[in-house]
Structure formats: structure tokens, C-alpha cells
Design a protein around this nucleic acid. Structure first.
Length: 919
DNA sequence: GTGTTATCATCGGG
DNA sequence: CCCCGATGATAACA
């Protein structure tokens, strides 16, 4: 990261509010988590004013945990659990240069400003950790479920083995092979079953392993059963035997599939699914065996039950290092290495020995489960926790340091790449929009373009790994604007297909589905989802509808119904709210579901369709929009509209924690300028046909020749200063160069947070780049601000980043003003916005070390660059009910009290990037 | 049997 | 509505 010192210029915070100890001694906490102070300013150069250029944390070197945090009261969980990130700070953000390359555009140093939009990897919300109680509950439910489920299945299997026809089929199939080999006479199934051919030692070893691990792995046990009944009698070499066996299985599977396609046995599947299930398990057991035989290094098969990572392969090595419990003390660093290993292994996956690698990937998948079990094991100190049969990846647990850090690393990766993607998208879209102007051409697919760029230059997240269960770094509730984003983060691989599945030998099982209502799914708000299968020419126009067949995704989902593996569900939400101007759909990750059952029914066109009933696995966080939609009256509502009608959309106040009401202040949606402030009216443009059309638009020129917004109202990139068209412009209000002046676009509410006073959140999904609100208040000169001692927590220092010389060098090519005069003026006169007495919702927005908003200087109604509007924009996609935050940009150890001592304030943002200090 | 290429299907998006 | 689209699975082919 190349950052000049000048870029880092940050106006430091002035004075200081109370320390934490003051809070404890009865000081009043305020909305922003600051504390009122009566101290006087003594130190001229120190300001307790939140400063504009939001360097967003990663420019600041991380600091050590302040020692005074030890004194924190117990309930201060947010800070006491924070992990200091050794690789934090600049070094952890290596891709700025790659971004430059990616965009392939002229890169100024000013780009660092551009990059201000690119928030630190830790931006925004972190994994909502389950509290211990929730966790235990979830684990208990899993345990019960898993044990019950699997033992039931196992018993079923065992009895099936001895009586059901399928067991016979399998054995007969085996016999076919044996007969082909001519080495053994045909035996009846029963004979084989009852024949203890295997050396008892090995048999016991296997069974013992199976039981000892208590892993309830159906396949594992089935493997043993089948192994016992089939392996020894023929005496054929394993490889020969299995290649023959495989053929037979294939043949048999073919038959089954044919019969499955027969409509007669559609619903019958439900009645006879025992057979089906047995088939599945049987053959997967066979496959497993095949796989293991294929891997030369697997000499001790049964050991896999105990130490799954022993099988030698790069994948498994990687896995081992991922499993501290197994590998014996893997550090975070090791884990990161394992990532590298994984991706390397992935490239190897295209090697000629495809079969073997398919096998490997299967092993990895199941090994994944082991690792997940280790998750459980690792976060709970009892080894009895190993006995989960579910292949469920649990939410990251932050109490386990190594794991938590890993989870955060993944999280940051995901967010990083998504922000990058969104950023590239906005810029490409912007270019396209300016190209298209007037020519009636269609816009290119910026999402694909951006995805391609990312794929070429960067690595996608979670690629190669075919993940069953939750994807590292992706959290329930995450939102995506484009379908390809799902691919980028590894949540759902196909570009347009709704069902993603993976191969497990001859079988496929579903890993993720997208329910966006293209078919007639039943999407209600409950945890049950009815998903319609694919195919049947429903999507193709001009084709006769047909019965859906049990193939591809449908087959995979059907298999998942028996394997009971978790399936990720992504819901495509049409933006019917109308509040956001973005594109049609938002994709929300809804968490893990299990396919409970499926059936075949006549669809809307009369032909048969498959319907899959998916049930959400309990214990996952609820999706915000469900909460919003469920409760029509907001719980804890204490003020209907704190703006008292002054905003276009009412802003209510919610307090579900105590009886406190929002503080009193006079709501003003706009800035209040004092009498002495004579703002020079802006010289408006003369564009009548819209400023985007006109090459000569003076406003556009001042923005460097381009409107800084896209047609959907999203800001393209952060600029030192944005010039919107204003009241004196001739362009209409619909001009694309008018965004922030139109006021809020989303439904916001202020709410009482856990530890930072009042905060702000939205009930809507907010796409990255959207305008949030202005930071409104009284304009003050710094001198005046210094006098307002008690309420400095509402001061916002207007950006004097213009005094930054390196920035200005680059700007000079864009902004045609006299640099010298400008620079002379600004550093001398600092201005501040005071929202203590008058303000808008912006005053409630809290600080975070990994924010999801950033501040942008905007001019539209006057020309005085010293006092731009402070407009807050979304730095990423923000799901409903996620708290909105920006970086206050205090300078650590630069805030002094009246006696000149450094003051310290604990930061309670709780983000993974949190330095623990606000200043 | 295996590696490469063509084709198909698909709950997007302008 | 039309068309372009990426991707993986499958079919066809060398």
C-alpha cells in the first residue's frame, strides 16, 4: 500500500470526552458512545471533533490493547473479547495495488482517496456470535438430532442388509462380479451375510473404529458392512474387483434411474424411499471403498474413522492444518497456509487422473465434515462432542481465538472481494452509461465484466473447495446485488442455474439453491421452503412443457433428502419496496436448510413437477427482512418520527433495552448556517437536456468531466469533493447529478444499541454506494466549536483534507481552481458542524473501526469549498437492521484533556478490526 | 480409456 | 421480447 504521509494527514481530535472510568463514575453516556465532558481546551492543536477523511481504520496502524481496558467492567463484552489482529493495518490490505492494475486506468495518488470508498476488510458487521446459551442449545439440538437420525438410519441399514431386496441386489451385484471372476461359486445373499469370512481382527478393528469415533457416519458403517460381506470371499485383488464392481453398480444405477423416471413410481418413492435410501447409501459406501482403494496412500482404512486427516493428499494436509485438534496445535498462520495449499490443490484438480481427484474431492467433502465436527469439538471442551452426524458447519465461535481469527480472515476476504467487485461494477457501469448516452445501445453486463476482471486478476474466495454447509466468510443475512457475486464468494457456483450440486462418486448432492420465484416456489416467511425442481421447459419459451425429470439438480436435491446434508438457501428478493432505486433483485443468504421430503405433483401447466420441502436448520440467526416483515409494529417503538415530518420518510426510535427515550434536540434536515456565513451562491449549469448529455455542463466539468453518480443514484467513487447540480442549475430535479440533495431514500430508525448508546439502522436493504443522509447541524468555526465544551460528541470537523498537498497535486488536473489560494485559506479556517442542538439522524450514527458508511464532501447550493456538506454513503451492501456506522477518524493518543494529558476512550464497536480505542 | 470440443440447459439482466 | 451470457454437465468426437 502506497500512502504518502500527507495522505495520512488527519486532523486530530480535540479534547476529550470522558474516559471510561468517568462513565463508571456516573457520567452520562451519550448517543454516540461519547461522554459529556466539562473540560476546557488547553491544547490548541488537539480536537475532539470527528474528522472528515475517513481513513477507515486500515490506514491507522493497529495499536496494542490499551492496558486500561483491564479495568473494564465485565459486561463490556464487546471490547473485552476483541482480538488484536497482528496482521492488521496496512499490511493486511495488500490489494490496493492490484486494484490499480485491475482497473487499468490512470492512477493518481489521489486514488488513495478513491480508495477511501474501499473500506477496510473489516467493514461493517461481524459474525453475530451466538451467546453461550444459544450455542449450547443449538449444539444440544444437533446432537440429539444427529444421534437419533443416524442411529435410526444405521439400524435401518443393518436390517435392510439382511432382509430388503436391495441388500440382496447389492450382494447379487457383487456376486456378478465374483462370478465374472470365476473365483467363487455363487452364493445366496443370506449365505454371504452370515458368513464371517473376514479375519476377526480386522473386522473388529473396523467396527471398533466406527464405534469408537461414534461418528454415526452411515457411509462409514456401511463401508464396513459391505466390506465385510464382499471383500474377502472372492479374493480378487482390490483394484480389479472394484473396477468390475463399479461397472455393475453403474449398470444397476442405470436401471434405478430409469425406474425413477417412470411417473408411476413418483410418489411411490416416498413410500418406498427406504429402498431408495438404501440404494444410495449402499452405493455410496461402495464408492467410498472404491475411492479409498484408489488412493494408494490409504493403507489403514479404518484409521480414517479416528484421524480423518491421515490420508495423504494436499487437500487433506490442508485440512489437517485446519484442525488444531487433530494436527496438534495449528496456529492461525498455519491455517492461512492451508488456504494456499487448498488453492494449489485445486489447480491440480484438473490433472489427468481425474477419477482419483474426484475421489479426493469427495474425501475432502466428507473430511470437511470431520473438520466441522472439530469445530464443535474445538469450541466445546468435551470430546463427547464428536458424535455429531450432521454435516453442519456451525457459525464461527469467537470465544475460540484461533478459529475466530480464521473466521474473521475469511469474513474479511469475502467482504473485501465483494467491495472490490461492487466498486468495479460501479465504475464500469459509469463508463457504460456515459458511452451509451443517447445512442440507444444496450448496456454491457458490467457484472460479468467485473467478475471476469476479478477472476483474472484476483482469486475468487472459496474457489475449488466444494463446500457443503456454510461458506467461510459468508454470513446469514448477507446481501448480494448480482447473481455472479454468489459465485465470487463461493456460495453458489452456477451462473444462472438455480441448483448447485456436487458429485460424490456416482451420486450428486445439492449444496445450494436459489429461490427467487422464477418457478412457483412457495416462499413464505416461515422456516419451511417449498422449492420447485428445474426442467420441464418451464423456462424455455416456445417449447412444450414436459414432466420434470429426476436428473441434474432435481436428482441432487432428491439425494440430499436422504443424505440429509445441509443445503444453502439464497433467496432472491424482488425490490418491491420501491425505496431503493437499484436493480430488480437482491439475493439474500438465508442459511442452511435440510431437504426433508419431496414429491411430484402436477404443476401449473399440468405437467408433473418436483417439489422439495426444505426446512431451515434451527439455531441460525434470523433474516432481518423476515423480522421486519413479521412485525408490522416495530417492537420497542418509542417515537414515531424523530424528524417530526421534516424528512420525507419518517424515522422512528426503537428501544428494546430500557426505558430511555432519545435525547431532545431540534431536528433539522439541513445545515444551519450562522449569520456571518455568507455563502457564495453556486454558478449553476445551463444544461436543459440533462447534464449527462452535455459535454459543457459546468457542474460536470467541476467533477472532472464526469458525473460522480450512476444512474441508479450510487456514487461511483469517493472524491475529495463532489459538485452536484444545484438550485441555480437549469437542469431538472431528475438530473443524475443530484443525489444527496434529495434527502433520505430509505426507511431508517434510531435504536438503542447494546453498548454505544443510540444508533441508526435501516429497515431496507441498502446497496453499496447509496446515499444515506447528511450530517446536518449548525456550522461553527473551530474557534466557536472549542467553546462548546460540554457537547463535543456531536462535532464533526469539516474536511480540511484539501490542505493535503499530495492530494491536491492530483486534483489540480481535475479541479480548475487556484490551488494556492485554496490552500492558504483552508488550513487557517477550520469549520465544524455541531449537531448537539440542531441536527438530523446523522448525529446518531456511531463510530466503528470497520464501518459500512463513509463521508463524502458535497457542494450543491453554494460554492464555498471550505464548508461542503458532509454526506454519508454506503460503502457496501447493507442488509436491513444492520447498524450504520462510519469511522470517526480520531487520532489515537492525540486527544488531550485540559491539563494536556492524553485521553483515551474505549471503542465499543466490537468489530474484528477494532483497535479497542476510539482515541 | 482419455483428452478435447460441441452442445445443452439454466430460478439473469439489459 | 429478444438476445447475450457464464458455467458446468453431458454428449460427441478424435
Amino acid at each position: 500500500m502506497v500512502v504518502s504521509d500527507d495522505m495520512l494527514h488527519i486532523k486530530t481530535s480535540k479534547l476529550a470526552s470522558g474516559t471510561h472510568s468517568e462513565k463508571c463514575s456516573g457520567r452520562v453516556s451519550t448517543e454516540n458512545g461519547h461522554f459529556a465532558s466539562t473540560s476546557k481546551y488547553k491544547h490548541a492543536k488537539v480536537y475532539a471533533i470527528r474528522d472528515f477523511p475517513p481513513d477507515c481504520g486500515w490506514l491507522d496502524e493497529p495499536i496494542d490493547r490499551p492496558s486500561e481496558q483491564k479495568d473494564l467492567p465485565q459486561e463490556n463484552v464487546a471490547t473485552s473479547e476483541i482480538e488484536v489482529f497482528p496482521q492488521g493495518g496496512v499490511k493486511s490490505y495488500p490489494d490496493q495495488s492490484s486494484r490499480r492494475r485491475i482497473l487499468g486506468r490512470k492512477c493518481y495518488t489521489q486514488e488513495e482517496v478513491t480508495v477511501v470508498r474501499d473500506f477496510p476488510p473489516f467493514c461493517g458487521r461481524n459474525a453475530p456470535p451466538l451467546n453461550e446459551e444459544e450455542r449450547m442449545k443449538w449444539l444440544a439440538s444437533l446432537k440429539n438430532k444427529g444421534i437419533k437420525l443416524v442411529t435410526a438410519v444405521n439400524e435401518e441399514k443393518l436390517s435392510e442388509k439382511t432382509r430388503c431386496t436391495d441388500g440382496k441386489q447389492v450382494i447379487e451385484a457383487v456376486q456378478d462380479v465374483i462370478a465374472l471372476e470365476g473365483r467363487a461359486p455363487r452364493l445366496s445373499a443370506e449365505e454371504i451375510q452370515s458368513k464371517p469370512e473376514e479375519p476377526p481382527s480386522e473386522k473388529m478393528r473396523k467396527q471398533g473404529a466406527c464405534e469408537a469415533s461414534s461418528r454415526n457416519d452411515v457411509k462409514e458403517c456401511m463401508y464396513n458392512i459391505i466390506g465385510n460381506s464382499t471383500k474377502s470371499p472372492c479374493g480378487a485383488s482390490p483394484k480389479e474387483f472394484h473396477s468390475k464392481l463399479k461397472k455393475v453398480i453403474e449398470k444397476r444405477d442405470g436401471n434405478i434411474r430409469v425406474s425413477e423416471e417412470n411417473p408411476i413410481c413418483n410418489i411411490a418413492l416416498k413410500a418406498e424411499d427406504k429402498d431408495f435410501e438404501t440404494n444410495l447409501s449402499d452405493s455410496s459406501a461402495f464408492e467410498n471403498q472404491l475411492l479409498e482403494e484408489e488412493d494408494e496412500s490409504q493403507e489403514v482404512l479404518s484409521d480414517r474413522s479416528i484421524v480423518p486427516g491421515l490420508i495423504a493428499s494436499p487437500w487433506l494436509h490442508a485440512k489437517i492444518t485446519c484442525n488444531p485438534g487433530l494436527a496438534g496445535g495449528s496456529s492461525k498462520r498455519k491455517r492461512m497456509n492451508s488456504f494456499a495449499l487448498l488453492s494449489r490443490a485445486n489447480t491440480k484438480n484438473n490433472s489427468p487422473t481425474k477419477q482419483a481427484h474426484q475421489g479426493l474431492s469427495q474425501v475432502v467433502i466428507w473430511n470437511k465434515k470431520d473438520s466441522l465436527q472439530q469445530d464443535v469439538l474445538y469450541t466445546n471442551d468435551s470430546s463427547t462432542q464428536r458424535s455429531y452426524g450432521n454435516n453442519v458447519s456451525l457459525p464461527p465461535c469467537r470465544t475460540s481465538t484461533g478459529r475466530a481469527s480464521d473466521a474473521m480472515t475469511s469474513r474479511n476476504k469475502v467482504r473485501e472481494i465483494l467491495r472490490l467487485f461492487q466498486d468495479i461494477c460501479q465504475k464500469l457501469l459509469h463508463e457504460e452509461e456515459s458511452k451509451i448516452n443517447g445512442e440507444g445501445k444496450t448496456l454491457k453486463r458490467v457484472d460479468f465484466l467485473a467478475a471476469k476482471i476479478l477472476k483474472e486478476k484476483m482469486e475468487y474466495v472459496n474457489t475449488g473447495k466444494q463446500i457443503i454447509g456454510s461458506v467461510p466468510g459468508v454470513e446469514v443475512g448477507d446481501e448480494f446485488q448480482y447473481f455472479v457475486e454468489l459465485n465470487i464468494v463461493g456460495l453458489h457456483r452456477p451462473s444462472q442455474v438455480g441448483i448447485d450440486y456436487i458429485k460424490r462418486g456416482e451420486r450428486t448432492i445439492a449444496t445450494s439453491i436459489i429461490a427467487s420465484g422464477a418457478y412457483e416456489d412457495e416462499l413464505d416467511n416461515s422456516d419451511i421452503l417449498t422449492y420447485m425442481g428445474q426442467g420441464g421447459n418451464v423456462m424455455q419459451k416456445g417449447k412444450q412443457p414436459e414432466d420434470q425429470r429426476l436428473e441434474r439438480g432435481n436428482l441432487a436435491l432428491a439425494n440430499s433428502r436422504f443424505v440429509k446434508n445441509p443445503v444453502r438457501v439464497i433467496r432472491g428478493e424482488t425490490r418491491s419496496s420501491g425505496l431503493s432505486e437499484g436493480r430488480g433483485k437482491t439475493y439474500v443468504y438465508d442459511g442452511l436448510y435440510v431437504v426433508e421430503e419431496f414429491k411430484q405433483e402436477p404443476g401449473p401447466h399440468g405437467k408433473l413437477v418436483y417439489k422439495f420441502k426444505l426446512v431451515r436448520i434451527p439455531g441460525q440467526p434470523e433474516i432481518a427482512w423476515k423480522v421486519v416483515r413479521k412485525s408490522k409494529v416495530r417492537e420497542g417503538l418509542c417515537v414515531q418520527d424523530i424528524s417530526q415530518g421534516k424528512e420525507i420518510i419518517p424515522i422512528c426510535a426503537i428501544n428494546t433495552r430500557d426505558s430511555e427515550r432519545p435525547p431532545l434536540f431540534l431536528y433539522v434536515p439541513h445545515m444551519i448556517y450562522p449569520d456571518w456565513c455568507r455563502r457564495t451562491p453556486s454558478k449553476g449549469c445551463d444544461c436543459i437536456n440533462g447534464c449527462s448529455q452535455s459535454v459543457k455542463c459546468s457542474c460536470v466539468m467541476r467533477n472532472g468531466g464526469q458525473i460522480p453518480y450512476n444512474h441508479n443514484g450510487a456514487i461511483v467513487e469517493t472524491k475529495p469533493l463532489v459538485y452536484e447540480c444545484g438550485p441555480t442549475c437549469k437542469c431538472p430535479a431528475s438530473c443524475y447529478n443530484r443525489v444527496s440533495q434529495h434527502g433520505i431514500k430509505f426507511q431508517f430508525e434510531i435504536f438503542k444499541t447494546k453498548s454505544t448508546g443510540w444508533g441508526v439502522r435501516s429497515l431496507n436493504s441498502i446497496p453499496s454506494g447509496s446515499f444515506i443522509c447528511e450530517y446536518a447541524g449548525e456550522l461553527l468555526e473551530d474557534r466557536e466549536a472549542e467553546k462548546r465544551t460540554g457537547k463535543d460528541e456531536y462535532l464533526f470537523d469539516i474536511g480540511n483534507k484539501y490542505s493535503d498537498s499530495s492530494l491536491w497535486d492530483d486534483l489540480s488536473t481535475l479541479i480548475h481552481d487556484s490551488r494556492s489560494s485554496f490552500r492558504q485559506v483552508v488550513p487557517e479556517y477550520g469549520f465544524t458542524i455541531d449537531a448537539a442542538r440542531f441536527g438530523n439522524m446523522g448525529r446518531f450514527i456511531n463510530h466503528s473501526c470497520s464501518p459500512n458508511l463513509y463521508a463524502q464532501n458535497v457542494l450543491y447550493d453554494h460554492d464555498d469549498k471550505r464548508i461542503p456538506h458532509i454526506m454519508l454513503f454506503a460503502a457496501e451492501n447493507i442488509p436491513p437492521l444492520q447498524e450504520l456506522t462510519y469511522h470517526y477518524n480520531y487520532m489515537i493518543d492525540q486527544v488531550h484533556d485540559e491539563s494536556g494529558d492524553i485521553r483515551k476512550k474505549v471503542c465499543c464497536c466490537g468489530s474484528s478490526k477494532c483497535t479497542g480505542r476510539l482515541y
